[in-house]
Design a protein around this nucleic acid. Structure first.
Length: 548
RNA sequence: GCGCCCGUAGCUCAGCUGGAUAGAGCAACAGACUUCUAAUCUGUCGGUCAAAGGUUCGAAUCCUUUCGGGCGUACCA
């Protein structure tokens, strides 16, 4: 509907002699009496044209060229809204066009065609298992990548991890301590700020199995081996968890590579040449204040080690150099503070930082039937993603991380996630898909199949029209997803489709409908619904079961 | 202290560049299965949009202040 009206409205606006580009907002009126689509365009233009909104609306309508058979009713209402009502013919035509698309890509858009985008997500350091905090990042990042792919973008799905800094040292020291303790030195001191989780003990015993006591000498070689074992152990667990959640990557970049291949020192030298580096208290500083940021930051500690900020800058330079049209960093709010420094540093080196979009999501709190589940780092009683998957299943876990706006801090309710009944919003969606599968089976048994020529005009029932309108919104929803980078847009849409379908299914007999053309059209409508649900769920990374 | 996110129905959340009677799900209550899966559908109940000012023809939406919550504010990542 929007695709039909938007360009025609644009022409009408130009005909009125309005200079420049005007954003034309078309929205679905809440009240169905207000038609199928509504715009506040006249009110938006009123100021510029110095006319009353309602007379602007009249002039616009006079200039608007639409086919009256498709848009039979255009009204001016309230303070100056223009409401459009489309004809059944319009919807039937669009529906036929939608049905003609290839099922596997039905709904896909081409708005990103020819553009390369890099989406970085998860990016957990290999120092432990994925927990609640990573879950949202993973699900959001992967889904955003999916959405962009469905918009025609060529997507690099990237995972960046720090395996050179302080955290890895802590991991090594912690593992060493457990290793010593395991081999009889019960009093061997555990590092104060080490990783307390039991998994460290597992790593230690694995090392013991492979190497016996051969690494206890703390030689450089032994330390490197312990470190590598720990990193590998953690990383393979992370990869496992991501696999279970359907999180995919096409590119892994690590900090060691940035050091080894000179990216880090190059970044530092370029910043120095640009005049934003100085030495103080034996440390090397980035003069961020000079660039309008709140304070200067240390890039190299007095110990000689870089802080995470420097490799981060080097990494972003690398991403910019790789020639993407768009770079999206999916970050938790706890990491948001470093973004301005990194961006500013790239900017002063002459890069076009408007290509970088930090996608920041808020935290998730875990509740169980209304009671908050406390997470204690000390006892390492963090809920891992694996735990959640075990309790609720991957589909539900993933959906729960996606069903809210990125900017809202929400509650992950374990009790609701565990609940495998009608209360669970995921099952509502999957059920719509499964219902059609079962319906098709039954129809085939009774000799009803979807022929090549569907008479869509058979569909006139209110429930049918509502469902049709929902299905026709699929593509614009996918586009909206790429504009907002909010997976929740897809979640909400699928719920609306599922709801419209369940209502249609409830009120309209399908297989036994008369005449046969109607039965066939209804079956075809159900089939289209199934495809939309399937593709939508695929974008979200959730399975679409044939039966439940 | 400062910066960012947030405060909307009993609960969890929507509400799109300010616009037409504030929405959904869950909970509560009342209904609908001899017929394509009732994991569904129908109806009822429920809100001074944290508070106070301001801008506007019009504010949940923009601005200011206050109160309340989260995250930052490291020579941790």
């Amino acid at each position: 509907m929007k695709a039909y009206l938007q360009p025609r409205l644009r022409e009408a606006v130009q005909a009125l002699g309005v200079a420049g580009d005007v954003d034309i907002l078309l929205e679905l009126p809440r009240n169905p009496e207000h038609g199928d689509l509504s715009t506040n365009l006249a009110m938006a233009l009123a100021r510029e044209l110095k006319m009353a909104p309602r007379s602007v609306a009249e002039k616009l309508i006079a200039q608007l060229r639409v086919d009256p058979e498709l848009v039979p009713k255009i009204d001016i209402a309230g303070p100056g809204f223009i409401n459009f009502a489309f004809s059944p013919k319009f919807f039937h035509e669009r529906l036929a066009a939608l049905a003609a698309e290839k099922p596997e890509r039905l709904g896909a858009s081409t708005t990103g065609q020819g553009k390369r985008v890099n989406v970085e997500y998860v990016s957990a350091n290999p120092t432990g298992l994925l927990h609640l905090g990573h879950g949202r990042n993973s699900a959001v990042g992967d889904t955003v990548a999916n959405i962009l792919e469905w918009n025609g973008y060529e997507v690099e799905r990237e995972y960046y991890f720090n395996n050179a800094g302080n955290q890895m040292k802590k991991l090594t020291d912690s593992t060493y301590a457990r290793y010593h303790q395991l081999l009889g030195e019960e009093d061997y001191p555990f590092p104060e700020d080490g990783y307390h989780g039991d998994y460290i003990k597992e790593i230690a015993s694995e090392i013991e199995r492979s190497y016996g006591n051969a690494l206890l000498d703390h030689s450089e070689e032994s330390e490197a081996r312990v470190r590598a074992c720990a990193e590998e152990w953690c990383f393979s667990r992370i990869v496992d968890t991501m696999k279970r959640l359907g999180i995919k990557h096409t590119m892994f970049v690590n900090e060691q590579h940035l050091h080894r291949d000179g990216f880090v020192t190059a970044a530092l030298e370029r910043l120095r040449d640009a005049g934003y580096i100085y030495e103080k208290d034996d440390a090397t500083w980035f003069a961020a204040e000079k660039l309008g940021l709140d304070k200067d930051r240390v890039l190299i500690k007095s110990s000689g080690e870089p802080t995470y900020r420097l490799p981060d800058i080097a990494y972003h330079i690398d991403k910019l150099e790789r020639g993407f049209d768009w770079i999206i960093d999916v970050l938790g709010s706890d990491h948001a503070a470093t973004v301005p420094d990194v961006i500013k540093a790239c900017e002063v080196l002459g890069y076009d930082v408007s290509k970088i979009t930090p996608l920041i999501h808020q935290f998730v709190t875990l509740t169980d039937g209304g009671k908050q589940v406390k997470m204690s780092k000390r006892n390492a009683k963090v809920h891992t993603i694996d735990d959640l998957i075990e309790e609720a299943g991957a589909d539900i876990v993933r959906y729960f991380f996606l069903m809210r706006n990125n900017s809202t801090q929400f509650e992950f309710d374990l009790a609701l996630a565990r609940d495998q009944t009608e209360k669970n919003p995921v099952l509502y969606l999957q059920y719509a898909h499964a219902r059609v599968a079962s319906l098709q089976g039954k129809a085939a048994e009774q000799g009803l199949t979807i022929g090549a020529d569907i008479d869509w005009s058979q569909l006139t029932h209110d429930r049918e029209m509502t469902l049709i309108k929902e299905l026709l919104r699929f593509r614009e929803t996918i586009i909206k997803g790429s504009e907002t980078l909010e997976p929740v847009v897809i979640c909400d849409y699928l719920r609306d489709v599922a709801s419209a379908f369940h209502k249609f299914y409830h009120d309209c007999q399908i297989i036994s409908a008369e005449p046969r053309e109607l039965a066939e059209a209804r079956l075809a409508l159900a089939r289209l619904t199934q495809i939309v649900m399937k593709n939508g769920l695929t974008i979200l990374g959730i399975s679409a079961p044939e039966s439940m």
